[in-house]
């Protein structure tokens, strides 16, 4: 079973490596959107520092949105998805592998580049640390929830817009506690509560999202 999981992750990562532009688009989108804010708002340090967490988090939300449509669509179009459905493996496991690979490709780079972007907003060491931590807990949740939306809208016309309408409202709790955690650190309060809640969301979505996406995929492929 783990061999199958490893195989599907390796497959998706190899495909991403041979299609590097897709990966880079997400990262550059994230960098550019975050960098536009200081240019638009002006260079007042206090103002920038107070909005940093929100800006980085909203941009991460949009960037992960951007890459969602590709999660199942490529496999759907070339018929490999129906072959994946017919393998003697639990579909939820395969879906979990695909989501994990998707997060490594489109979520993890955001986590790694975020402290650099946080510096632009004059965030201190503790706040930068917290930014990375909240993103590390939060971006997998975005990929997991997004997978349900991507699976449901598979093969529909205008699926890209529909998936944003479907998924963005579900991202709100992650945004609130993710950005809230960083703001709490900036203002000197502890952020343990925020982190625990993010962790709880991660566990819950790890448990439920693969099952829900698998069920949605079966319907979409029909």
């Amino acid at each position: 079973m783990f061999a199958a999981l490893k195989c599907i992750i390796a497959r998706d990562l190899t495909l991403a490596l041979r299609h590097r532009s897709d990966v880079l688009t997400t990262v550059f989108f994230f960098i550019i959107v975050v960098s536009l804010f200081p240019l638009g708002v002006g260079p007042e340090t206090d103002l920038l520092r107070s909005m940093a967490a929100g800006v980085v988090w909203v941009s991460a939300l949009l960037a992960s949105m951007l890459s969602l449509s590709r999660l199942f669509a490529d496999d759907f179009n070339d018929g490999t998805l129906e072959q994946l459905l017919l393998t003697p493996q639990p579909l939820a496991l395969i879906v979990f592998g695909k989501i994990l690979a998707h997060w490594i490709i489109s979520g993890l780079p955001l986590v790694l580049i975020a402290p650099l972007l946080g510096l632009q907003f004059g965030l201190g060491g503790d706040a930068l640390m917290m930014l990375v931590l909240t993103l590390l807990l939060g971006t997998p949740v975005l990929s997991l929830i997004g997978a349900i939306g991507a699976a449901l809208t598979l093969g529909l016309r205008g699926g890209g817009v529909l998936v944003s309408l479907l998924v963005l409202p579900l991202y709100i709790p992650v945004l609130i506690f993710g950005a809230g955690g960083v703001e709490a650190t900036v203002s000197g309060m502890g952020a343990e509560g925020h982190l625990s809640l993010l962790g709880a969301m991660l566990i819950l979505s790890l448990l439920l999202a693969p099952l829900a996406s698998a069920a949605a995929l079966r319907i979409s492929v029909e």
Binding site: R11, L15, G79, E82
Partner: peptide
């Protein structure tokens, strides 16, 4: 085996 090849073209 359906109408699609079911192959990843990059691999």
């Amino acid at each position: 085996m359906g109408h699609h090849y079911g192959l990843k073209f990059e691999l």
